[in-house]
C-alpha cells in the first residue's frame, strides 16, 4: 500500500471518489424513465457495486482469513434463502380479490391498547 506523507493510502481516496461518483450516477439515473424494472435493477446494481467497494477496500474482506469471508458469505446466503423460499409462495400465490375493505373489521369494538 502506497502511503504519502499525509498517511493517506491512495486506494482509500480513489475508493471514496468512486463511491461518490456512483452516488451521483445512481441519483441521475433514477430520474431517467426506463422500461419495466430497469430503474430498480440499475439502482440496486450500483448499490451492490458500492457495497462491494466498501467490503473489499474499507473492510478488507477479500484479504481477510477464509473464515471471515465464510461468515460474510453465510449472512448473504441465508438472506438469499429467506427471499428465495418466500418467493416460492409469493410468486405462485393466486391473489384473490381483496373484497370490500370498508366492511367492518371488528376493530370498531376495540379497547385501548395496554
Amino acid at each position: 500500500m502506497t502511503t504519502r506523507t499525509t498517511g493517506l493510502p491512495r486506494s482509500y481516496l480513489f475508493t471514496w471518489a468512486a463511491l461518490v461518483g456512483l452516488l451521483a450516477a445512481t441519483m441521475a439515473l433514477a430520474y431517467v424513465p426506463m422500461p419495466g424494472p430497469l430503474n430498480l435493477v440499475l439502482a440496486l446494481g450500483i448499490s451492490a457495486v458500492k457495497a462491494l467497494l466498501v467490503l473489499a477496500l474499507f473492510m478488507k474482506l477479500f484479504r481477510a482469513p477464509a473464515l471471515t469471508r465464510a461468515a460474510a458469505a453465510a449472512g448473504l446466503f441465508w438472506l438469499a434463502v429467506l427471499f428465495a423460499l418466500s418467493a416460492t409462495d409469493y410468486l405462485t400465490r393466486k391473489v384473490e380479490p381483496a373484497g370490500d375493505l370498508s366492511a367492518p373489521t371488528g376493530r370498531e369494538y376495540q379497547q385501548g391498547d395496554r
Partner: peptide, 26 residues
Amino acid sequence: TGLYWHFVDIVWIFLYPLIYLVGRSG
C-alpha cells in the same frame, strides 16, 4: 468498530435507492 461502522454504511447504501429513488422517473 471500523467493521461495524462500514456495515452501517452498507445498510444505508441499500436503503438510499429503496427509499429516496423510488418512482423518481415517474
